[in-house]
Structures are given as structure tokens and as C-alpha cells.
Design a protein around this nucleic acid. Structure first.
Lengths: 137, 137
DNA sequence: TAAAACTTTGCAACCGGGTTGCATGTATTT
DNA sequence: AAATACATGCAACCCGGTTGCAAAGTTTTA
């Protein structure tokens, strides 16, 4: 419901405007990470630059995180409540090569390996590619 | 030297043409992963589409692998001799947020975590971001 | 060795996602 | 109610990626 969306936005200090609520709703409903254009196509009446700026606002305020894929498109996924998007937070994602959906696998903890001295780690992305359960049956 | 480049190309069944040798040389010399445009800027006289097609050929023949970053650009790095780019091969990369260079950390093994049943893993990318040793001193 | 077939390269044009400037509309403050 | 700030929509632009096509180079075949 709407209130839930508003609360989620407010909890990240984002003013709950109509556009923002719709974009957030879409991201939550689809339950997979979406790119700017994917969102644009699903929200027919909405202007691209509005979605673009909305996604930037979301990312700046740690409501979503970005997941780059091999073709140069970036998809966005809503951070779960525990996600702080802080340094050393590790995002684990699964991209299905068949249906092209990107799943967030938040409950699979991954260790960031020790690096040679001198490397200072700020964040990390782990993207696994393959076939997802629903394409696999 | 040239012969080394030719051998590297031939070992992956790529005909060693002038353009290909130059692109490969540049990738090896710079020792960091480079995007299409980065290569284009370093190789002033060379046509973009030639570089583009060259990179595709390299990738198709497993001479380089692609590393997507957060802004939607894809960088290419020469696979080391052990790298087969096969399923289950895990690429570990480090992107410096300051100098924007991408390093291949091939000697840091990483385990692909166990996923929930139904997920079939084909490949994986692990991108760590932070500050590299030479920016860090 | 010359012609035919194929591959590589360069040029130009295009495409499409991402980005920005600006004007209008909507909310917030005074 | 006026002034200010913020959000939205539109249009235009930018730029990396991609493709079609013709010229140059290479390999094959007769």
C-alpha cells in the first residue's frame, strides 16, 4: 500500500513524491533489478529523465544499489532493510542468462578476500551468471 | 616484441593482423583493463569500429575478458595464460576509485558461494572498488 | 600467375541509453 | 499572498556502441 512506500522513502530521507512512489513500487513489485529503460517501458506514461533523476536520488540516499552487467547497462535493486550500502558491504547478485533478470541474493554471505598490501577496499560487487530456478525447470 | 604478440594471438586461433597486434600490445603495455574509448584515445590513428571488432574477436576467442563497471562502461583485460574463461572460472578485479584503473587480481582465489537449489552457475565476476596501492601512498 | 573468394580495415552513418537546460508546475516557507 | 525551493516534463544533446558498405589486403583455386 501507499503508506508502506512513503515510509520506505521517508526512512531514507527522500520526499515521497508521486513519481518516486511509482518507481519504488515498480521496483518492489517486479522483485528483480531493473535498468532505467526497463522501468521506462513498464511505466509508459512517465518521462525518462524523471525516472533517471529518481534513480539517482534513490542511489544517493542508499535506497537502491546499482548492479552493472556485461553489456554496459546498469540495473537497480531496492536495498533490503539491513542493507546499509556502506563500505565493506558486499552485494551478491545473480543474472539469469536466459530471462535476463537480476536477482539479489542477500542472504548468501560472501567474504571479501584479502588483497595485497596497499589496496584499500571501499565496496564490492559479486555478480554470478547462469540459469535461474524458474528458467531451469 | 612482435613475435610474442603473434604467438599469443595464434594460440587463441586469431589471425595476427596489424590492428590486432597493436590493440593487444596496448592492453598488455598498460597492464590495466581498458574500455573501447580508452583504447581509442591511446591509439589515435586507429578507427573505432576496428578496435570494436577487434575486441569482440578477442573476447569470442577468450583472449580477453570483459569487466563491467558501475557507469555502464565495459573494460577489457587480457586473460593470463592460465585463464580459460570457462564456466566456474572466477574473475577478481579491482577498480580504483581515484585513478579509475582496473586491475586484474588473478592470484587471489575466491570461492563461488553455494546458491539456493535451482540456480545453475555459468560464470562469475567479482569487482572490488577502492583505492589502489599507487594512489594510496 | 591471374582470377575468384574471403577477410580485414576505414569511413560514415545510425542507434539508443544516459544526461542536461530550461520552463512549468507543485509544494514549502515567510 | 508572495517568495523560495523543489519536482516534473519536454526537448535537445552527447557519446559510446554498432552496422552497412566499399576499399584494401590476404588466401585459395584453377
Amino acid at each position: 500500500m501507499t503508506n508502506h512506500l512513503e515510509q520506505k522513502l521517508l526512512s531514507k530521507n527522500i520526499k515521497p513524491t508521486p513519481v518516486r512512489k511509482l518507481v519504488l513500487k515498480k521496483l518492489l513489485d517486479e522483485r528483480v533489478a531493473m535498468s532505467l529503460v526497463e522501468i521506462e517501458r513498464k511505466l509508459e506514461r512517465m518521462d525518462r529523465s524523471s525516472i533517471y533523476r529518481t534513480l539517482r536520488t534513490f542511489e544517493e540516499n542508499y535506497l537502491v544499489h546499482a548492479i552493472p552487467d556485461r553489456n554496459g547497462t546498469v540495473r537497480y535493486a531496492v536495498c533490503d532493510d539491513a542493507c546499509t550500502c556502506e563500505p565493506r558491504h558486499l552485494h551478491l547478485h545473480f543474472l539469469c542468462l536466459q530471462c535476463n533478470k537480476t536477482y539479489c541474493l542477500t542472504d548468501n554471505p560472501v567474504q571479501i578476500p584479502d588483497l595485497p598490501p596497499g589496496y584499500e577496499v571501499r565496496s564490492a560487487d559479486f555478480l554470478i551468471k547462469g540459469i535461474c530456478p524458474s528458467c531451469n525447470k
